[in-house]
């Protein structure tokens, strides 16, 4: 009787194994056919972050795999309807040695992970400049309701929801928000960083494969939040220069004066890419500073008068 039972069970088990394999095969085929940005880095920083992720997962498997094996084995072996002989020790409730082992081994693993974490956190600090033969370009990022404004101070141009960067060149972002908090994220190039009103954060990244990479906001910021997507186009240095020259030469494009900025800053949804020439000097700093000025309240437009540079801050 017991044998028959076992046989039936084994058949059931084979079916399960088959089902499982089919699921894994389908998922595998599916996953290899789609683009998974975090796992397919195209930039120096994202690549290091990806490698770190894999390292940590592998180290953790040292603990996790035994847990699964032990669970399955104990459940199988010590079931009360398992006919095979097994020991039953209802009063066995402790053993210093083996308890010590599972205090110690996880501690050692966490110790190793801690060292890795400590070093990686310093190495991959978003504020840390990337060493490169090419000098970095600076981009100022302003999260608005609900779009991204990118100012290229050295190139004297600005763009909305379109970021162009040269390959193999560190890009140094300064970021803020003139809206609720957002999080700036281009998964294939680097991890994210918050953009907060009245504050400035920084981020370095470097693309080393040409292509167009999606970026977006990772922090809810109101009804247009889902539409805050932009394209990042990484091209060769000469391609980048051509892009810059084209915009600078296009006299149909408006200048990004304070007035133009104020119009742009009004809440809008799903904004297509748009370009500006000649962003007002210190626009970025003025956007941060206005939050520090007495009498300022949300939604108040930015006027050149309220720029601290003029020294007439008080409204």
């Amino acid at each position: 009787m017991a044998r028959i039972l076992l046989k039936v069970k084994t058949k059931k088990h084979w079916l399960l194994v088959l089902l499982f394999s089919v699921i894994i095969a389908i998922s595998g085929a599916y996953l290899s056919s789609v683009n998974i940005p975090v796992l397919e880095p195209k930039g120096v920083i994202a690549d290091k972050e990806f490698r770190l992720l894999i390292t940590v997962v592998l180290i953790m498997c040292i603990v996790v795999v035994p847990v699964f094996i032990l669970l399955a084995y104990f459940i199988y072996k010590y079931r009360d309807d398992n006919p095979s002989k097994k020991r039953y020790s209802p009063d066995w409730d402790g053993n210093r040695l083996i308890e010590g082992i599972w205090w110690l081994i996880p501690s050692v693993i966490i110790g190793v992970l801690s060292v890795i974490t400590w070093n990686a956190t310093y190495a991959l600090n978003p504020y840390r400049p990337i060493k490169s033969i090419n000098p970095p370009i600076v981009v100022q990022v302003i999260a608005l309701d609900w779009k991204w404004l990118f100012i290229y101070p050295a190139q004297h141009l600005a763009s909305v929801n379109q970021l162009n960067i040269p390959l193999n060149t560190p890009v140094h972002f300064y970021l803020t928000s003139d809206a609720p908090m957002n999080s700036f994220w281009i998964p294939q190039l680097s991890g994210q960083i918050y953009c907060m009103p009245g504050m400035r954060t920084q981020l370095y990244l470097e693309a080393n494969q040409a292509g167009t990479y999606k970026g977006w906001s990772a922090n809810i910021s109101g009804i247009g939040f889902a539409g805050m997507m932009f394209n990042t186009t990484a091209t060769s240095r000469s391609g980048f220069n051509r892009w810059v020259a084209k915009i600078q030469a296009d006299h149909n494009l408006p200048n990004l004066s304070f007035g133009a900025y104020n119009r742009l800053a009004k809440p809008t949804l799903y904004v297509p890419a748009r370009y500006y020439r000649q962003p007002a000097t210190d626009l970025f700093q003025a956007i941060i500073d206005k939050y520090m000025l007495p009498g300022f309240s949300y939604g108040r437009s930015l006027t050149p008068v309220s720029s601290p540079a003029t020294g007439k801050g008080v409204v």
Partner: peptide, 9 residues
Amino acid sequence: VPPVDFQLH
């Protein structure tokens, strides 16, 4: 791990 979190947060 903070740098990994930058990609998953």
